[in-house]
Simulated scan of single mutants.
Amino acid sequence: GPLAPGASVTLTANGGSAGATWTAVDGTHTVKANVDDINRITESDETNNIMNKQIVVSPGKPDLVVTDISWDPASPASGYAVTMRATIKNQGSVSTPAGVIHGVLFT
């Protein structure tokens, strides 16, 4: 419907020359919004229809944390071998690299 003087509305991309979505890639990018891009409406000022804004896309990274420590046997006796275990979790936004060992140091 009509947009009254002083009113505003938020529009979401749903197609057009740039498509409905963009696959983010690392780096700083400029997003350009151009209202009335094909001049459907005769306006009092046609020079203020474009806004540019920068978006910074950071690379996702793994984030490893230790969530538990255990040992075997559960009740070790002096002089006997004890096997240590750590449960780790990746709470990051991407997987750890393939082929890289998830090492844990026990002290």
Rank of each mutant, 00 (worst) to 15 (best):
G1A: 09
P2E: 07
P2C: 09
P2K: 15
L3Q: 06
A4I: 03
S8D: 08
S8Q: 08
V9P: 03
V9R: 10
V9F: 06
T12K: 15
T12A: 14
T12E: 08
A13C: 02
N14D: 07
G15D: 02
G15A: 00
S17A: 08
S17L: 09
A18H: 06
A18M: 09
A20T: 04
T21P: 02
W22G: 00
T23S: 04
T23Q: 10
A24R: 00
D26M: 10
D26R: 15
H29Y: 10
H29S: 05
H29R: 09
T30D: 05
K32C: 01
A33G: 07
A33F: 13
N34H: 12
D36N: 14
D36W: 02
D37T: 04
D37W: 15
I38F: 11
N39L: 06
R40M: 12
R40A: 12
T42G: 09
S44L: 13
D45S: 09
D45V: 11
E46A: 09
E46Y: 05
E46K: 09
N49R: 10
N49E: 04
I50Q: 13
I50W: 04
N52M: 10
N52E: 11
K53N: 13
Q54M: 09
Q54S: 14
I55K: 03
V56K: 15
V57E: 03
S58G: 11
K61N: 12
K61R: 11
D63M: 14
D68C: 03
D68I: 03
D68A: 09
W71C: 07
D72I: 03
D72V: 05
A74D: 04
A74L: 10
A74V: 13
S75H: 08
A77I: 13
A77E: 15
A77H: 07
S78I: 06
G79S: 01
G79R: 02
T83G: 08
T83S: 08
M84R: 14
R85W: 12
A86W: 07
K89W: 01
Q91L: 12
Q91C: 12
G92S: 00
G92N: 00
S93V: 04
S93F: 00
S93M: 02
P97F: 01
P97K: 14
A98W: 01
A98I: 09
G99L: 02
G99V: 01
G99N: 07
V100Y: 04
G103Y: 15
